[in-house]
Design a protein around this nucleic acid. Sequence first.
DNA 1: TAAATAAAAGATAAAAAACTCTTTTATTTA
DNA 2: TAAATAAAAGAGTTTTTTATCTTTTATTTA
Lengths: 151, 151
Amino acid sequence: MHLDEPMGIFSKTCEYAMRAVFYIAQKSEEGQKVGIREIALHINSPEPFLAKILQKLSKDGLILSSKGPNGGFYVDSGGLQRPLADIVRAIEGDSIFTGCGMGLSYCSESNPCPLHEDFKKVRGQIVVMLQNTLIGKFNEGLIAGQLTLNK
Amino acid sequence: MHLDEPMGIFSKTCEYAMRAVFYIAQKSEEGQKVGIREIALHINSPEPFLAKILQKLSKDGLILSSKGPNGGFYVDSGGLQRPLADIVRAIEGDSIFTGCGMGLSYCSESNPCPLHEDFKKVRGQIVVMLQNTLIGKFNEGLIAGQLTLNK
DNA sequence: TAAATAAAAGATAAAAAACTCTTTTATTTA
DNA sequence: TAAATAAAAGAGTTTTTTATCTTTTATTTA
Protein backbone atom coordinates (compact mmCIF):
# COMPACT_ATOMS: atom_id res chain seq x y z
CA MET A 1 0.00 0.00 0.00
CA HIS A 2 2.86 2.30 0.69
CA LEU A 3 6.34 1.10 0.13
CA ASP A 4 10.03 1.49 0.62
CA GLU A 5 10.68 4.69 -1.23
CA PRO A 6 9.02 5.60 -4.54
CA MET A 7 6.22 8.01 -5.31
CA GLY A 8 7.34 11.40 -6.28
CA ILE A 9 5.14 13.66 -8.33
CA PHE A 10 6.37 12.15 -11.59
CA SER A 11 6.82 8.59 -12.84
CA LYS A 12 10.25 7.03 -12.99
CA THR A 13 10.06 7.20 -16.76
CA CYS A 14 9.62 10.95 -16.46
CA GLU A 15 12.36 11.31 -13.88
CA TYR A 16 14.81 9.49 -16.14
CA ALA A 17 13.72 11.65 -19.05
CA MET A 18 14.32 14.89 -17.14
CA ARG A 19 17.73 13.83 -15.88
CA ALA A 20 18.78 12.50 -19.29
CA VAL A 21 17.78 15.67 -21.11
CA PHE A 22 19.68 17.85 -18.64
CA TYR A 23 22.71 15.66 -19.15
CA ILE A 24 22.42 15.74 -22.93
CA ALA A 25 22.01 19.51 -22.81
CA GLN A 26 25.20 19.89 -20.86
CA LYS A 27 27.16 17.78 -23.35
CA SER A 28 25.63 19.64 -26.27
CA GLU A 29 26.75 22.92 -24.80
CA GLU A 30 30.23 21.45 -24.71
CA GLY A 31 29.82 20.54 -28.37
CA GLN A 32 29.59 16.79 -27.88
CA LYS A 33 27.07 14.12 -28.77
CA VAL A 34 26.61 11.48 -26.16
CA GLY A 35 25.74 7.77 -26.33
CA ILE A 36 23.14 5.96 -24.28
CA ARG A 37 25.68 4.06 -22.25
CA GLU A 38 27.31 7.23 -20.99
CA ILE A 39 24.01 8.93 -20.26
CA ALA A 40 22.67 5.93 -18.35
CA LEU A 41 25.87 5.78 -16.36
CA HIS A 42 25.76 9.42 -15.36
CA ILE A 43 22.10 9.72 -14.50
CA ASN A 44 21.90 6.26 -12.94
CA SER A 45 19.19 4.69 -15.04
CA PRO A 46 18.80 1.25 -16.66
CA GLU A 47 20.36 1.60 -20.08
CA PRO A 48 17.83 -0.27 -22.27
CA PHE A 49 14.91 1.39 -20.56
CA LEU A 50 16.45 4.78 -21.04
CA ALA A 51 16.94 3.90 -24.71
CA LYS A 52 13.19 3.57 -25.09
CA ILE A 53 12.58 6.89 -23.45
CA LEU A 54 15.12 8.70 -25.60
CA GLN A 55 13.71 7.08 -28.72
CA LYS A 56 10.38 8.58 -27.88
CA LEU A 57 11.76 12.03 -27.15
CA SER A 58 13.75 11.81 -30.34
CA LYS A 59 10.71 10.81 -32.37
CA ASP A 60 8.84 13.75 -30.88
CA GLY A 61 11.65 16.05 -31.95
CA LEU A 62 12.55 17.09 -28.40
CA ILE A 63 16.08 15.80 -28.74
CA LEU A 64 18.13 14.92 -31.80
CA SER A 65 20.17 11.83 -32.55
CA SER A 66 22.60 10.48 -35.09
CA LYS A 67 23.80 6.94 -35.63
CA GLY A 68 27.22 5.59 -36.27
CA PRO A 69 30.61 6.37 -34.82
CA ASN A 70 30.71 9.73 -33.05
CA GLY A 71 26.95 9.60 -33.09
CA GLY A 72 24.70 9.96 -30.10
CA PHE A 73 22.04 12.20 -28.69
CA TYR A 74 22.21 15.97 -28.63
CA VAL A 75 20.11 19.12 -28.69
CA ASP A 76 20.59 22.19 -30.82
CA SER A 77 20.58 25.74 -29.54
CA GLY A 78 16.81 25.91 -30.01
CA GLY A 79 16.42 22.80 -27.90
CA LEU A 80 18.35 24.38 -25.07
CA GLN A 81 15.70 27.06 -24.91
CA ARG A 82 12.80 24.65 -24.64
CA PRO A 83 11.06 24.37 -21.27
CA LEU A 84 11.20 21.20 -19.21
CA ALA A 85 7.43 21.18 -19.51
CA ASP A 86 7.79 19.86 -23.05
CA ILE A 87 9.61 16.80 -21.78
CA VAL A 88 7.12 16.12 -19.03
CA ARG A 89 4.20 16.57 -21.36
CA ALA A 90 5.71 14.16 -23.90
CA ILE A 91 6.09 11.48 -21.25
CA GLU A 92 3.13 12.00 -18.93
CA GLY A 93 0.63 13.56 -21.25
CA ASP A 94 -1.51 16.53 -20.40
CA SER A 95 -3.41 15.17 -17.45
CA ILE A 96 -0.82 16.16 -14.91
CA PHE A 97 -1.42 19.74 -16.02
CA THR A 98 -5.17 19.50 -16.18
CA GLY A 99 -6.55 16.40 -14.43
CA CYS A 100 -8.65 16.37 -11.27
CA GLY A 101 -6.68 15.87 -8.08
CA MET A 102 -9.29 13.49 -6.71
CA GLY A 103 -9.63 11.58 -9.99
CA LEU A 104 -13.14 12.78 -10.77
CA SER A 105 -13.81 12.76 -14.48
CA TYR A 106 -16.70 15.20 -14.32
CA CYS A 107 -14.55 17.77 -12.59
CA SER A 108 -13.96 20.89 -14.65
CA GLU A 109 -13.98 24.63 -14.42
CA SER A 110 -17.73 24.73 -14.92
CA ASN A 111 -18.47 21.73 -12.70
CA PRO A 112 -15.66 21.70 -10.13
CA CYS A 113 -15.02 19.07 -7.48
CA PRO A 114 -14.61 20.17 -3.85
CA LEU A 115 -10.85 20.52 -4.10
CA HIS A 116 -10.78 21.97 -7.59
CA GLU A 117 -9.64 25.48 -6.76
CA ASP A 118 -6.90 24.34 -4.41
CA PHE A 119 -5.56 21.89 -6.94
CA LYS A 120 -5.65 24.52 -9.61
CA LYS A 121 -3.23 26.63 -7.64
CA VAL A 122 -0.86 23.74 -7.09
CA ARG A 123 -0.96 22.75 -10.71
CA GLY A 124 -0.41 26.32 -11.72
CA GLN A 125 2.76 26.39 -9.71
CA ILE A 126 3.96 23.12 -11.23
CA VAL A 127 3.34 24.55 -14.68
CA VAL A 128 5.23 27.72 -13.82
CA MET A 129 8.13 25.69 -12.54
CA LEU A 130 8.26 23.47 -15.62
CA GLN A 131 7.84 26.37 -18.02
CA ASN A 132 10.49 28.49 -16.34
CA THR A 133 13.03 25.71 -16.26
CA LEU A 134 14.71 25.70 -19.63
CA ILE A 135 16.49 22.55 -20.69
CA GLY A 136 19.84 24.33 -20.71
CA LYS A 137 19.25 26.02 -17.37
CA PHE A 138 21.75 24.03 -15.35
CA ASN A 139 24.51 23.74 -17.89
CA GLU A 140 26.98 25.98 -16.11
CA GLY A 141 26.44 24.26 -12.80
CA LEU A 142 26.74 20.84 -14.38
CA ILE A 143 29.84 21.72 -16.35
CA ALA A 144 31.44 23.26 -13.29
CA GLY A 145 30.66 20.07 -11.40
CA GLN A 146 28.62 21.84 -8.74
CA LEU A 147 25.58 19.80 -9.70
CA THR A 148 25.13 16.11 -10.45
CA LEU A 149 22.33 14.03 -11.92
CA ASN A 150 23.24 10.60 -10.63
CA LYS A 151 21.67 8.86 -7.67
CA MET B 1 4.23 5.40 -22.67
CA HIS B 2 1.40 7.77 -22.04
CA LEU B 3 -2.12 6.56 -22.09
CA ASP B 4 -5.81 7.22 -22.22
CA GLU B 5 -6.36 9.26 -19.11
CA PRO B 6 -4.65 8.49 -15.77
CA MET B 7 -1.78 10.23 -13.98
CA GLY B 8 -2.87 12.76 -11.50
CA ILE B 9 -0.64 13.79 -8.65
CA PHE B 10 -1.88 10.96 -6.45
CA SER B 11 -2.36 7.23 -7.01
CA LYS B 12 -5.82 5.83 -7.60
CA THR B 13 -5.66 4.23 -4.18
CA CYS B 14 -5.16 7.66 -2.70
CA GLU B 15 -7.90 9.21 -4.80
CA TYR B 16 -10.37 6.57 -3.64
CA ALA B 17 -9.26 7.12 -0.06
CA MET B 18 -9.84 10.88 -0.25
CA ARG B 19 -13.25 10.57 -1.85
CA ALA B 20 -14.32 7.82 0.56
CA VAL B 21 -13.30 9.75 3.63
CA PHE B 22 -15.18 12.86 2.46
CA TYR B 23 -18.24 10.70 1.92
CA ILE B 24 -17.95 9.01 5.30
CA ALA B 25 -17.49 12.40 6.95
CA GLN B 26 -20.68 13.65 5.40
CA LYS B 27 -22.66 10.65 6.63
CA SER B 28 -21.10 10.93 10.07
CA GLU B 29 -22.21 14.54 10.30
CA GLU B 30 -25.69 13.29 9.55
CA GLY B 31 -25.32 10.77 12.38
CA GLN B 32 -25.09 7.69 10.18
CA LYS B 33 -22.60 4.91 9.73
CA VAL B 34 -22.16 3.76 6.18
CA GLY B 35 -21.30 0.39 4.60
CA ILE B 36 -18.72 -0.28 1.95
CA ARG B 37 -21.28 -0.99 -0.73
CA GLU B 38 -22.87 2.41 -0.37
CA ILE B 39 -19.57 4.23 -0.24
CA ALA B 40 -18.25 2.45 -3.32
CA LEU B 41 -21.45 3.29 -5.15
CA HIS B 42 -21.33 6.97 -4.33
CA ILE B 43 -17.65 7.60 -4.94
CA ASN B 44 -17.48 5.29 -7.95
CA SER B 45 -14.80 2.87 -6.84
CA PRO B 46 -14.40 -0.92 -7.02
CA GLU B 47 -15.99 -2.19 -3.83
CA PRO B 48 -13.48 -4.90 -2.76
CA PHE B 49 -10.53 -2.67 -3.51
CA LEU B 50 -12.04 0.12 -1.50
CA ALA B 51 -12.56 -2.35 1.35
CA LYS B 52 -8.81 -2.85 1.54
CA ILE B 53 -8.16 0.84 1.61
CA LEU B 54 -10.69 1.48 4.36
CA GLN B 55 -9.32 -1.41 6.37
CA LYS B 56 -5.95 0.26 6.32
CA LEU B 57 -7.32 3.66 7.28
CA SER B 58 -9.31 2.01 10.01
CA LYS B 59 -6.30 0.16 11.35
CA ASP B 60 -4.40 3.44 11.38
CA GLY B 61 -7.19 5.01 13.41
CA LEU B 62 -8.05 7.59 10.76
CA ILE B 63 -11.61 6.32 10.45
CA LEU B 64 -13.68 4.13 12.75
CA SER B 65 -15.74 1.05 12.00
CA SER B 66 -18.18 -1.29 13.61
CA LYS B 67 -19.37 -4.68 12.44
CA GLY B 68 -22.82 -6.16 12.38
CA PRO B 69 -26.22 -4.74 11.51
CA ASN B 70 -26.28 -0.95 11.53
CA GLY B 71 -22.52 -1.10 11.46
CA GLY B 72 -20.27 0.58 8.98
CA PHE B 73 -17.59 3.20 8.74
CA TYR B 74 -17.72 6.56 10.43
CA VAL B 75 -15.62 9.33 11.95
CA ASP B 76 -16.06 11.05 15.29
CA SER B 77 -16.01 14.80 15.79
CA GLY B 78 -12.25 14.71 16.27
CA GLY B 79 -11.90 12.90 12.97
CA LEU B 80 -13.81 15.64 11.17
CA GLN B 81 -11.13 18.09 12.29
CA ARG B 82 -8.25 16.03 10.92
CA PRO B 83 -6.51 17.33 7.81
CA LEU B 84 -6.67 15.49 4.51
CA ALA B 85 -2.89 15.29 4.76
CA ASP B 86 -3.28 12.49 7.30
CA ILE B 87 -5.14 10.38 4.75
CA VAL B 88 -2.64 11.04 1.98
CA ARG B 89 0.30 10.32 4.26
CA ALA B 90 -1.25 7.03 5.37
CA ILE B 91 -1.65 5.89 1.78
CA GLU B 92 1.31 7.40 -0.06
CA GLY B 93 3.82 7.67 2.73
CA ASP B 94 6.00 10.67 3.34
CA SER B 95 7.86 10.78 0.06
CA ILE B 96 5.28 12.88 -1.72
CA PHE B 97 5.93 15.53 0.92
CA THR B 98 9.68 15.19 0.96
CA GLY B 99 11.03 13.22 -2.03
CA CYS B 100 13.14 14.64 -4.84
CA GLY B 101 11.17 15.68 -7.90
CA MET B 102 13.76 14.18 -10.21
CA GLY B 103 14.07 10.98 -8.20
CA LEU B 104 17.59 11.63 -6.96
CA SER B 105 18.25 9.90 -3.67
CA TYR B 106 21.18 12.09 -2.71
CA CYS B 107 19.05 15.22 -3.04
CA SER B 108 18.52 17.02 0.24
CA GLU B 109 18.58 20.43 1.78
CA SER B 110 22.33 20.27 2.24
CA ASN B 111 23.05 18.63 -1.12
CA PRO B 112 20.21 19.81 -3.38
CA CYS B 113 19.55 18.72 -6.96
CA PRO B 114 19.15 21.38 -9.67
CA LEU B 115 15.40 21.61 -9.24
CA HIS B 116 15.35 21.28 -5.48
CA GLU B 117 14.24 24.80 -4.60
CA ASP B 118 11.49 24.91 -7.19
CA PHE B 119 10.13 21.58 -6.10
CA LYS B 120 10.23 22.66 -2.50
CA LYS B 121 7.83 25.47 -3.26
CA VAL B 122 5.44 23.19 -5.10
CA ARG B 123 5.51 20.63 -2.36
CA GLY B 124 5.02 23.34 0.22
CA GLN B 125 1.86 24.38 -1.52
CA ILE B 126 0.61 20.80 -1.69
CA VAL B 127 1.22 20.46 2.03
CA VAL B 128 -0.62 23.70 2.74
CA MET B 129 -3.54 22.52 0.66
CA LEU B 130 -3.71 19.14 2.37
CA GLN B 131 -3.25 20.58 5.84
CA ASN B 132 -5.88 23.26 5.35
CA THR B 133 -8.46 20.86 4.00
CA LEU B 134 -10.13 19.30 6.99
CA ILE B 135 -11.94 16.04 6.46
CA GLY B 136 -15.29 17.61 7.32
CA LYS B 137 -14.67 20.66 5.16
CA PHE B 138 -17.18 19.86 2.45
CA ASN B 139 -19.95 18.45 4.58
CA GLU B 140 -22.38 21.30 4.03
CA GLY B 141 -21.87 21.30 0.30
CA LEU B 142 -22.21 17.56 0.10
CA ILE B 143 -25.31 17.44 2.26
CA ALA B 144 -26.88 20.23 0.27
CA GLY B 145 -26.13 18.28 -2.89
CA GLN B 146 -24.07 21.09 -4.42
CA LEU B 147 -21.05 18.79 -4.52
CA THR B 148 -20.64 15.18 -5.57
CA LEU B 149 -17.87 12.62 -5.24
CA ASN B 150 -18.83 10.22 -7.99
CA LYS B 151 -17.27 10.06 -11.41
C1' DT C 1 34.05 -1.43 -49.07
C1' DA C 2 34.65 -3.65 -44.63
C1' DA C 3 34.65 -3.03 -39.80
C1' DA C 4 33.15 -0.57 -36.03
C1' DT C 5 29.86 2.18 -33.79
C1' DA C 6 25.49 3.64 -32.26
C1' DA C 7 20.57 4.27 -32.46
C1' DA C 8 15.93 1.94 -33.75
C1' DA C 9 12.82 -1.59 -33.23
C1' DG C 10 10.63 -5.66 -31.60
C1' DA C 11 9.73 -9.13 -28.44
C1' DT C 12 9.98 -10.60 -23.52
C1' DA C 13 10.31 -10.60 -18.58
C1' DA C 14 9.86 -8.92 -13.83
C1' DA C 15 7.76 -5.97 -10.43
C1' DA C 16 4.27 -3.07 -8.74
C1' DA C 17 -0.33 -1.35 -8.66
C1' DA C 18 -5.02 -2.11 -9.21
C1' DC C 19 -8.61 -5.06 -8.68
C1' DT C 20 -11.44 -9.52 -7.32
C1' DC C 21 -13.08 -13.41 -4.82
C1' DT C 22 -13.78 -16.33 -0.76
C1' DT C 23 -13.74 -17.28 3.97
C1' DT C 24 -13.77 -15.76 8.68
C1' DT C 25 -15.05 -13.07 12.62
C1' DA C 26 -17.72 -9.92 15.17
C1' DT C 27 -22.10 -7.70 16.21
C1' DT C 28 -26.85 -6.93 16.34
C1' DT C 29 -31.62 -7.85 16.55
C1' DA C 30 -35.51 -10.68 16.17
C1' DT D 1 -29.68 -18.35 20.38
C1' DA D 2 -30.23 -18.26 15.41
C1' DA D 3 -30.24 -15.46 11.39
C1' DA D 4 -28.74 -11.51 9.21
C1' DT D 5 -25.45 -8.01 8.56
C1' DA D 6 -21.11 -6.01 7.84
C1' DA D 7 -16.18 -5.52 8.39
C1' DA D 8 -11.54 -8.21 8.48
C1' DA D 9 -8.43 -11.11 6.46
C1' DG D 10 -6.27 -13.97 3.11
C1' DA D 11 -5.39 -15.62 -1.27
C1' DG D 12 -5.63 -14.85 -5.90
C1' DT D 13 -5.87 -12.34 -10.81
C1' DT D 14 -5.23 -8.69 -14.13
C1' DT D 15 -3.16 -4.63 -15.83
C1' DT D 16 0.36 -1.25 -15.99
C1' DT D 17 4.87 0.15 -15.31
C1' DT D 18 9.50 -0.74 -15.29
C1' DA D 19 13.23 -3.20 -17.05
C1' DT D 20 15.86 -6.47 -20.25
C1' DC D 21 17.45 -8.85 -24.31
C1' DT D 22 18.11 -9.51 -29.25
C1' DT D 23 18.05 -8.17 -33.91
C1' DT D 24 18.09 -4.68 -37.42
C1' DT D 25 19.32 -0.45 -39.69
C1' DA D 26 22.04 3.53 -40.41
C1' DT D 27 26.44 6.04 -40.37
C1' DT D 28 31.22 6.80 -40.16
C1' DT D 29 35.97 6.09 -40.81
C1' DA D 30 39.90 3.51 -41.84
